[in-house]
């Protein structure tokens, strides 16, 4: 049966719950959470910045895993490889979306907190590099016209994933401009209990939203693959008719 609706019943429930969670989390971050002692209201940006940054480091692993499956299946089972490829491109786009938000909100915060939009700090630079790697992944897929594009993109994704642990560890390995880690950063690190609900709800809400986007984008890519298969089928049919 052809899939014509964008949401099934589970998707519709997921969408409504996600929107409700985003509204609730935003309300907690903007109105309920206490004003931070040193940064003031600017700290409220971090309720959006940190969850998006965390998720920008998780979706690359979805892309990485799917790319490995693609490389494994591309000759053994091309249909499974196409499924893995659809997951890979969806995760790469969502990585770029979350990474863009991480960089934009970080710069808006930095301009007020540090007085500068940007600095070549280890965390900022490695995050920018990660974003550029996934933008180049998408550009490769969009612009390359060779028959090996999907394989090249999968190999690039494996290399891009190497940057993820570097971004994560950068504020532990090098102490430069970016604030020290709040979680697991030592005895003085941690979040005040009064801020935890706003932070936790924002992580949950934006993770639910990311999974929803991933599912929608995957469905779209599968449709595109079907359309390409259909075009190939029509070309074969036409060539057979000409041969007869």
């Amino acid at each position: 049966m052809q899939r014509s609706r964008i949401f099934g019943p589970i998707g519709a429930v997921w969408f409504v719950l996600t929107l409700a969670a985003i509204v609730y989390a935003t309300r907690l971050g903007l109105l309920i959470a206490p004003t931070e002692a040193t940064m003031g209201n600017m700290a409220r940006i971090l309720y959006y910045h940190v969850p998006h940054s965390m998720l920008a480091l998780l979706f690359p692993y979805v892309n990485f895993g799917a790319s490995l499956f693609y490389l494994y299946w591309r000759r053994r089972d091309p249909l499974k490889a196409l499924t893995a490829d659809a997951v890979a491109i969806s995760a790469a786009e969502i990585t770029v979306v979350y990474g863009t938000i991480c960089l934009v909100t970080g710069m808006l915060w930095g301009r007020v907190a540090w007085g500068i939009w940007w600095t070549w700090d280890a965390r900022l630079t490695s995050m920018l590099l990660l974003w550029l790697l996934y933008v180049s992944y998408l550009m490769l897929r969009k612009l390359s016209s060779t028959g090996q594009t999907h394989t090249l993109a999968a190999v690039l994704s494996v290399f891009a994933a190497i940057d993820v642990p570097i971004v994560f560890m950068s504020i532990r390995w090098w102490r430069t401009q970016h604030p020290a880690p709040v979680f697991g950063g030592g005895p003085d690190s941690g979040l005040d209990p009064s801020m935890k609900p706003a932070f936790g709800w924002n992580v949950l809400a934006w993770a639910l939203w990311g999974v929803l986007l991933l599912a929608l984008r995957y469905g779209l890519e599968r449709r595109r693959q079907e359309r390409e298969q259909e075009a190939a089928l029509q070309a074969i049919e036409a060539s057979l008719e000409m041969a007869q």
């Binding site: 209201n41 940006i45 959006y48 998006h52 934009v104 808006l108 915060w109 007020v112």
Partner: peptide, 14 residues
Amino acid sequence: SMEAHHLLYAYVAV
């Protein structure tokens, strides 16, 4: 203030 502007820009940008 710049603080207020940037907070608003950040949420709207997201």
